[in-house]
Simulated assay, not measured.
Amino acid sequence: MLLYGASGHAKVIITCLRAQRGFVTAIFDDDPAKTALWQVPVIGTYDPTHLPTEELIVAIGDNAIRRRIAGQLRHAFGQTIHPSALVDASVQVGEGSVVLQGAILQADARVGRHVIINTGAHVDHDCRLDDFVHVAPGATLCGNVQVGEGTLVGAGSVVAPNLRIGRECVVAAGSVVTTSLPDYATVRGNPARIVKIRQP
C-alpha cells in the first residue's frame, strides 16, 4: 500500500495495515523535510509512475484537503479495516476509506469513498455516509442517520436516530444532535445549536 500524507493520521493507518499483516511501501508528502515515518520512506511529492499498480490511501484527516488530493491522483485506491473493528457482513465500505481500531459498523450501513471511521466510533444500522466524511474518535451515529459529503462529526458527539446531516457540516466535539442539519452548518452543544452557516 502507498500513502499520501506523512502525518499522525498516517501512523494510525500504518498500524491498521500492519494489524492486517499488510505494509506500507512508501509515503508521498509535499514537505521536503520529511524523509521517513516509522521507518517507511517518505519519497517526496506525488509521482504517478511510482509503483503504478500499487493501491493508495490518502492519509489526511482534513476532509477538504483529502478530497482535493484524491482528485489529483492516478493510483487506484485501497482501503483498510482494523481487525478489532466490528463490521457487519452487510456493511458496504467505499474505496479509500479507513475503519480504525474499535469502531463498530452495524447492519446495512453504507460508507462512501475516502471516509474515516475513526477510533472507537459507532455507526449504527442503515446509516448512509457520503464521500469524504470523517466520524471522529468516540462519535456515535444512531440508526438511519444520513451524513452529507465532507462533513465532520466531532469526537465524542452523538447524532440521534433518523436525522439528516447536510454536506460539509461541522459537528463540534461532544455535541448532541437532536434535529436534522442544513448543508454547511456548524453546530455545538447539548442539544446542538447552529452557530454558523458557511456560504458555499
Rank of each mutant, 00 (worst) to 15 (best):
L86I: 12
H134V: 05
V99M: 03
I194Q: 06
V98M: 10
Y4C: 03
I13A: 06
A121C: 10
C142R: 02
A109K: 06
C169A: 00
D47W: 03
I104S: 13
T45P: 07
T35G: 13
L152W: 12
A6Y: 05
P83E: 00
T49Y: 13
V87Q: 04
W38R: 15
G96H: 02
E168R: 14
L37G: 10
I197A: 06
E149W: 11
V195H: 03
P191M: 00
V171N: 01
G166M: 05
A192Y: 02
A76N: 14
V195F: 05
A76C: 12
R21Q: 15
N162Q: 14
P161L: 01
Q101K: 13
V42Q: 05
D62G: 02
I57P: 06
L100T: 03
Q39M: 10
I14T: 05
D47Y: 02
A139S: 06
Q92R: 15
I116F: 12
Y184T: 03
R66Y: 02
I69R: 11
Q79I: 04
L100D: 00
G94Q: 10
D88A: 15
T53N: 14
S180G: 13
D126V: 12
G112I: 11
R66M: 03
V93T: 06
H122K: 13
D126F: 11
G71I: 08
I81K: 04
Q39D: 15
R164T: 14
L51C: 10
V133G: 05
I43P: 11
C16P: 00
T25Y: 13
T179Y: 01
R66A: 02
S97F: 08
V99F: 03
I27E: 01
S157I: 01
H50S: 09
V187N: 02
V91L: 05
S84E: 09
A192T: 01
H82V: 03
A76R: 15
A64W: 14
V153C: 10
V147C: 07
V177L: 12
